[in-house]
Structures are given as structure tokens and as C-alpha cells.
Design a protein around this nucleic acid. Structure first.
Lengths: 232, 232
DNA sequence: CATGAATTTAACCCACCGGTACATTTTCTT
DNA sequence: AAGAAAATGTACCGGTGGGTTAAATTCATG
């Protein structure tokens, strides 16, 4: 009955909010930070609840248990990163420029999404047990592959890309750089110093990485960034 | 009596062993697996103790507390990986071949050291707080940089490598591939399928990665592996 | 306003687990 | 043999923290 859906959820009458969506969002926001900081077993539900506008009981009311909360945090953060990737439009660009733009954007997106990185690290510690249960994540991830496939196809059609160029492998390559750069910053710095993680070094790294990817895919590409400054 | 120092550790008189080193090793071995599997907070001391030849009491006797145990596990696993790297001798090889060999070896070493990978991941979750306290790890890590520097120097002297080639950046590149390939296997497979993680695909990936690194560093290098099979 | 469903509060429970107390056994030294 | 020191066994503690119980409050609806 009544197709129009529920009455606009914004109408708060007197004292209470009765705004479940907002409460859930609040919990997810806090939980994201907590799980990203301490992991699944390391995060503390009481602490999470304390930083919330609501109470521990509500966490269990809406999410069932700790794992349920964790799963939704995971899905939310995946969706957020992929949506930031989707904003990128490379359809009009020359394939080489498009690919370079994609590499730069992925590198930056990872740099700017530390919560995502940490949660994926944590999920890998758990052998992706929770991610595998998700129905939305695999679908989310299609989009980046589609985008790369499209660029590859155009590059090959233009005779610029090698025939072996492969979207999945490309994504693996680009992700490896971009992910490791954030995920292993702590141990890498502890082992070798922080020289690579300052502003200029990161820009140079980004340019070099793009150059490497292009050199791998583009026929006769002549890398320029290695040892030189390069901007987009 | 007896010459050679302590009485051969095998001579058990009556009941006890009196072999603290072996007991510690046993504990570290079990703890490595446990911490790698569940993380610092996730691992359970009682469980670790149960899988040991000895008792929980001994863990605290030798390692003080959980964190003390974790730290020694971490150092042990770092030492193990680096020592496997040290076995590799590239001094006699042409710089290009030497670098390719180094990439391949690093890739394989990471593939074959899942415990190391997981513990480094876990340590990154903890912002390398424990690694930073270690005195031996930074020293261990010098050796790989030294080796790369030596190859770079030879490559430049021979006019084969770009002047911008830099050992630290190279190590970062090589590690990024090799590490990500193992660390993110679970989530990557969950997201995009396991196609890249079978035997042949891994070999191809390894060859392509080596090709990319070489293309970045070697003047006028013409990549061959992208899309073709290539062995070492 | 009565009713019942949705939402929220406060107090509580209790298993688990990191860590310890204390006694005891074995080995080493002399 | 004796005593010190190292190594080990056993039993226990107590707080932490995930999860629950039951009752109260709010809101939509008739």
C-alpha cells in the first residue's frame, strides 16, 4: 500500500529526534574511526558508544553485534572510495593522458582515504571473511575495471597500447603502488626513514609511478619523470 | 667435561630438558603463527600456551607480557626475511640482470613469507609503534638498500641506468608490488576474482613487474614481458 | 486518548583472558 | 651435600568488555 513511501523523516515534533538514519550514520562514523584505528578485536564497543550521541544499546539495536557493525562500516567505506573514483571523467582524453590521469587520481584517492586503507588492511588480516559476505562491494568494484577497460580499448584501437594490456592487471599495478604507499608508511618510515613521505617526494613518486605504468603499456613510451620534476 | 662447551643439549638426564633456548623458540614459533593469524589484540595467550610444549607461565617468565612476546616475534620474522635476501648474490651479474634478479627474488621472498607480511600489516595497523622500539630491525634493513645502491652505482657507471635512479625509491617500488601481491590477495580476490593469483598469472606478474622496474631505470629499455611469457 | 510499534535508557551479567602468587622441582656451583 | 639460582606447575584473581534484560519514552494511527 501507499507507494509514496514513508512520511518525510525530517518532521521532528518535540523533544526526541526519532531519526534512525541519523543515529545510524552517527554510529557508523564513530565506528569507522575506531575500527580503522584499532581493528576488529581491538576496537571497543563501550568506547565507540561513548563517542556517539547515543548509547551502546542502540548499537546492538541497529547492528546486532560487533561484527554486524564492522561489516556495515566496511561497506560504507568501500562505497565512499569508489564513488570518489567515479567522479573522475577521462572519456574525452587521449588514452595516454587518460591513463596517467587515472593513475594520479588513484594515488591521490588512496592518500586521502586513510580509513579506507586501514579497514582494507584489517579486512585482509581477516582473510576478507566479511568482505566476501557483502553483496554490494563486488558490484561497486566493477566500475573501476570498466573504466580501465575502456581506456585500454581506446589505446589499442589507436595503436598506442600494447595488445597485452589488460585492465585487471593494470588495476592491480596501480593499486599496489597507491595502497602500499599509505598502508606501509609506518613500517617503511621506521625502517628507512621518512624521506619518501614528504610533499615533494610524494609528488615525484606519483609521477614516476604513472610513468612506469605508461612505460609498461604504451608502445615506445619514453619515461620522463624518473629523476625529474613533473606535474600533471 | 667435555670439550665443546655446554654438554650436548640432547643429554637429558632424568625428566627435564633445561634447554631455555629451545623453549623460547617453541613459544616464538607458536606465537608467530598466532599473531600473524589474529593480530596483537586478537591473539590469545591461553591458546598460544596450549599449542606450546610448555605453559602460559613460561611465556610470562621469558617474555614478560604479551607485548614483549609480540616484539620478539616481530624481530624474528624480520630477521628471517632479510637473511633470505642476504643469501642472494648478484655481485657478478650485469647490472640489468642483477636488478631483474633482485626483483624476482624479492617477489618470491614475499610470496613465501606470509607470516612476515601479516605481521608487518599488523604492525602498520599499530603505526609501527613496536617496530620503532627495535634496535636490530633498522640495521637489518640496511643490507637490502646497500645491495641496491651497489647495483645502481654499477648501472650508472656502465651508462645503462638513468642518473636519477635511486636505491630507496627502487626498494619502495619493488616492495610495493611484492608486498601488495600477498597482503591484499584476500580482498583483491573477493573484489575481482582470483585470476591473478594462480601459478601462471603470478609468474607473468612477476616478469611484468621486473620489466616495469627495469623500464623505469634502464635507459632505452624495451619491455618484453607485457603480454608474453617470460622466465628468468 | 488508547494502543501498539518503534526507539531509547539504565542497570546488569558473566565469560574470557591477561597477568600473578606461591610453591616446587631441577640444575648448577662449590 | 647444600644452597643458590633457574625453571616450571597450579591455582587463582579481577577488570575488561561484549552482550542482555526489562522497563520507559516517543510517535503514528484510529
Amino acid at each position: 500500500m501507499d507507494v509514496g513511501g514513508k512520511p518525510a523523516p525530517k518532521t521532528r515534533k518535540t523533544s526526541w529526534k526519532k531519526d534512525p538514519a541519523a543515529v545510524k550514520e552517527d554510529i557508523l562514523e564513530v565506528a569507522t574511526i575506531a575500527f580503522a584505528a584499532h581493528g576488529l578485536s581491538g576496537a571497543n564497543i563501550n568506547e565507540i558508544a561513548a563517542k556517539t550521541e547515543t548509547s551502546k544499546r542502540m548499537i546492538y539495536y541497529y547492528f546486532g553485534d560487533k561484527e554486524g557493525l564492522y561489516c556495515q562500516v566496511l561497506e560504507r567505506v568501500y562505497a565512499s572510495l569508489r564513488s570518489s573514483e567515479d567522479k573522475l571523467n577521462v572519456a574525452g582524453l587521449d588514452p595516454v593522458a587518460a591513463l596517467r590521469r587515472l593513475v594520479h587520481a588513484t594515488f591521490d584517492a588512496h592518500s586521502n582515504a586513510p580509513h579506507f586503507i586501514r579497514l582494507v588492511m584489517i579486512e585482509n588480516i581477516h582473510n576478507a571473511d566479511y568482505l566476501r559476505k557483502s553483496e554490494i562491494v563486488p558490484q561497486l568494484n566493477r566500475s573501476i575495471i570498466v573504466k580501465l577497460e575502456e581506456v585500454c580499448a581506446r589505446g589499442k584501437a589507436a595503436g598506442q597500447f600494447r595488445e597485452g594490456a589488460n585492465a585487471l592487471q593494470l588495476h592491480w599495478l596501480i593499486s599496489a603502488f597507491s595502497f602500499y604507499n599509505v598502508s606501509n608508511k609506518a613500517t617503511f618510515s621506521a625502517s628507512f626513514g621518512g624521506a619518501l613521505f614528504g610533499r615533494p617526494a610524494q609528488e615525484q613518486l606519483k609521477a614516476q609511478v604513472a610513468d612506469m605504468v605508461l612505460a609498461a603499456v604504451v608502445i615506445g613510451y619514453d619515461p620522463v619523470a624518473w629523476g625529474a620534476d613533473q606535474s600533471d
